[in-house]
Design a protein around this nucleic acid. Structure first.
Lengths: 128, 128
DNA sequence: CGGCATCCCGCCGGATACTG
DNA sequence: CAGTATCCGGCGGGATGCCG
């Protein structure tokens, strides 16, 4: 940790917030999870698209590019006809998956409670 | 866990993604961290605003409302003149803070690497 | 097959002004 | 002090079409 100050400093928290935005992006978790399941083999573009379901080509491309830029995902092009492109998680991507999945587990465990809280809150709002 | 299927199922992952969007929101982490520092005492609206810095009243209000709706934050109004409103994390909010801070630590540890990756990526893009 | 370019709409989020 | 209301620019993200 050679960066300035500690993880809970003001600027540090900003940076955390920024990366969390990437992780918290609508599609990132789904993509990371799909790539994690594929493991070493990697996964091709349209396989990824099918596996995730409901994502547009554009958003899949955009999100993969962002992840690639951050070094989370490796992109390998096989110059065949038709072209083949494989995506797989890098070591960095795999290490990210650990805390992300921990958060995912927390979410899953508390999901019902959260939804119940929302319902209760909305009901009170409607009563007024 | 009485919800359908396991944490890594398709619909489960969707739900996770949804809640991660709340957590990954631009301001949520900063707010949660500030409230966590205040602990039992809670924190008042403008104190929160000052402590975070750079957030507009509107977004502070909006984000606090969302967190309150999800049951992460408790809002207490003291009917004095001028009015006082205290915000503090609920048990749910505090339990969320655990995996979130783990993710924050990961981010902090890998921040330099990520930025280096971005620079390298952008440089290659410019070369073309 | 695996993209990139374009159009378009909705909401995120900032700035400002007003209220109890 | 702690909001709500309004305006508005920007971008997230879907649909479609074209290309190597």
């Amino acid at each position: 940790m050679t960066a300035n100050s500690h993880p809970h400093s003001e600027p540090g928290c900003r940076a955390v917030s920024e990366v969390l935005s990437r992780v918290g992006d609508k599609w990132t978790v789904l993509i990371v999870k799909s790539l994690q399941a594929a493991d070493e083999d990697g996964r091709r573009f349209n396989d990824l698209k099918r596996d995730i379901g409901g994502i547009s080509q554009q958003m899949l491309t955009r999100t993969l590019r962002s992840l690639e830029r951050d070094g989370m995902v490796a992109r390998t092009v096989h110059p065949t006809v038709p072209p083949q492109v494989e995506y797989r998680l890098t070591d960095l991507g795999n290490s990210l998956a650990v805390p992300v999945m921990a958060l995912a587990d927390w979410t899953f465990e508390n999901m019902e409670l959260i939804h119940a809280n929302r319902s209760a809150y909305d009901e009170l709002a409607n009563a007024a």
